[in-house]
Simulated assay, not measured.
Amino acid sequence: MNQHLPHTDWCTRDHRCNLGEHRSAPLLVDLPGHGRAVLTRVRTDTGREHAEIRVRVALAATEPAARRQLASLLTDLRQVVTRAALAGRPRPRHAA
């Protein structure tokens, strides 16, 4: 790990710190029988921070329905990533 990037308050301080990144403990959202999401905050050796999200969703047994689910997931993921990117921008300054 780059010596200029010390552990963060949220870092789990495990073996991955020596592999070029700091990682938080995973946050889980579990909907038994339907799906699971895992969110982890990551800081790379360059100092860039990311949210790593893994999602597992139970798909329908029939192909047309499963394809509709996949299309819906892709659409919704695009919206989530776009909203997160916009939320990270500086707030506009209002004239007084």
Rank of each mutant, 00 (worst) to 15 (best):
M1S: 06
M1Q: 00
N2Q: 10
N2F: 07
Q3I: 06
Q3Y: 04
H4K: 13
L5V: 03
L5N: 04
L5F: 07
L5S: 00
L5I: 12
P6W: 01
P6M: 00
H7K: 02
T8Q: 05
T8A: 07
D9C: 01
D9N: 08
W10Q: 02
W10G: 00
W10E: 02
C11N: 00
T12R: 11
R13S: 03
H15G: 04
R16E: 05
C17H: 02
C17S: 04
N18I: 00
L19E: 14
L19S: 10
G20F: 06
E21T: 02
E21P: 00
R23F: 02
R23Y: 00
S24W: 01
A25C: 04
A25H: 10
P26I: 02
L28F: 14
L28M: 12
L28T: 03
V29Y: 05
V29P: 00
V29Q: 08
V29N: 08
L31I: 12
L31M: 07
P32M: 04
P32N: 04
H34L: 11
H34D: 05
G35P: 02
R36Q: 10
R36Y: 02
A37E: 07
A37S: 12
V38P: 00
L39A: 07
T40W: 02
R41L: 14
V42A: 02
V42P: 01
R43V: 06
T44A: 12
T44I: 00
T44S: 15
D45S: 13
T46D: 08
E49K: 05
E52Y: 07
E52F: 07
I53K: 01
I53W: 05
R56N: 09
R56M: 10
R56I: 07
A58I: 05
A58V: 13
L59H: 01
A60R: 09
A61C: 03
P64A: 10
P64W: 08
R68A: 14
R68Y: 03
Q69E: 11
S72T: 13
S72D: 13
S72H: 12
S72A: 15
S72W: 13
L74Y: 04
T75S: 14
R78T: 15
R78G: 15
V80N: 02
T82W: 10
A84G: 14
A85N: 15
L86K: 15
L86Q: 14
R89M: 10
P90G: 09
R91A: 15
R93E: 15
H94D: 09
H94Y: 13
A95C: 02
A95R: 12
